[in-house]
Amino acid sequence: MKNSIVLKIITTVLIVSIIFSLFSCMNGDRIEVPPVKLEDVNGNYKGRLITVQGEFRAEKVVDFKIKKDTLTFPEFPLKEIVMAVVKDPVKTRDALAAMGKVKYNLNYTTVLNADKNWIELTFSPKELELQIPVDGVNKKTVVTVAAKQKGYFIGLDHTLRFALAAEKITVNGTELSPFEAINYNFPYCIKTN
């Protein structure tokens, strides 16, 4: 009986010491995240874009550039916006071809976190104005772009994550209705330089 109690006590002490050893090893192996500076955000990026509008979901890779306080899309993704205005797939394709590349600048401000290992970006989107050609007539289109969440530049892998939304579209002064918001999610963007 005494041997059984002593064996249980020794086993318990051994298990507890193993658990504490494992926890101390785990805490000692923490990854040190290199510090970043606000200027580290600047550069050329290639990003994964997930576009969601209702049940529709599409993915593609887009390029953009960040310089000082502006994120610039040399070719903003317009397909869903034009489709919402035009409605016809063939006319949408023709309108996109006629419009060519549309540049969009997105202003932002930055804040460096206390540990200096990530940067928070607060976006200030402005309206996107387009002339969409349909049946020989240009439709003046104004898209209200919003950023409902902040973006983050992560120091560990120098990647950027952010999201935008086209919340409202006005065509020739009339709000498009019904219209379901177009969400542009950029879950993983890497610097190419």
Rank of each mutant, 00 (worst) to 15 (best):
I18R: 13
L22K: 08
F23T: 15
P34N: 13
P34Q: 15
C25V: 11
I9T: 03
M26Q: 15
I19S: 03
F23V: 12
D40L: 09
V33K: 02
M26D: 13
V13L: 10
I9P: 00
I9F: 02
D29Q: 15
D40P: 05
S21R: 02
I9D: 00
G28V: 09
V36G: 07
S21Y: 03
T12P: 01
M26G: 11
T11Y: 02
V33S: 05
I10P: 01
L14D: 00
I9G: 01
I31P: 04
S24N: 05
P35S: 11
I31Y: 13
I31W: 07
I9Q: 02
M26W: 13
I15F: 10
N42I: 04
G28D: 14
V13M: 06
S21P: 00
V33H: 05
E32T: 12
L38N: 04
N27F: 13
S21N: 10
V13A: 10
I15T: 11
F23G: 12
I19V: 08
N27W: 14
P35N: 09
I15K: 02
D29T: 15
S17N: 00
I31L: 15
S21C: 00
D40I: 07
V41T: 06
V33Y: 01
G28I: 10
C25Y: 15
F23K: 13
E32C: 07
D40W: 11
P35L: 09
E32P: 05
K37M: 10
E39V: 14
P34T: 14
R30K: 08
L22N: 11
S24Y: 09
N27D: 07
I31T: 15
L22R: 07
E39H: 08
V33P: 01
E32V: 12
E32D: 10
C25D: 06
P34E: 13
V36S: 02
N27R: 12
M26R: 14
I31R: 13
E39C: 05
D40E: 13
S21G: 06
S24D: 09
L14P: 00
S17E: 01
P34A: 11
G28S: 14
P34G: 13
K37N: 05
V41N: 04
R30H: 07
D29R: 15
N42R: 03
V36Q: 03
K37H: 07
S24K: 01
G28W: 11
V16S: 03
K37D: 10
E32K: 15
S21Q: 00
S17F: 03
F20S: 03
F20L: 04
N42M: 08
V33N: 07
I18E: 05
N42K: 06
V16C: 04
T11E: 00
I9V: 01
F23H: 08
E32I: 12
P35Y: 11
L14W: 00
I19R: 08
I18F: 08
K37V: 00
I18S: 14
G28C: 08
F20V: 10
P34I: 06
N27I: 13
P34H: 07
C25M: 09
G28A: 10
S24G: 12
S24E: 11
P35I: 14
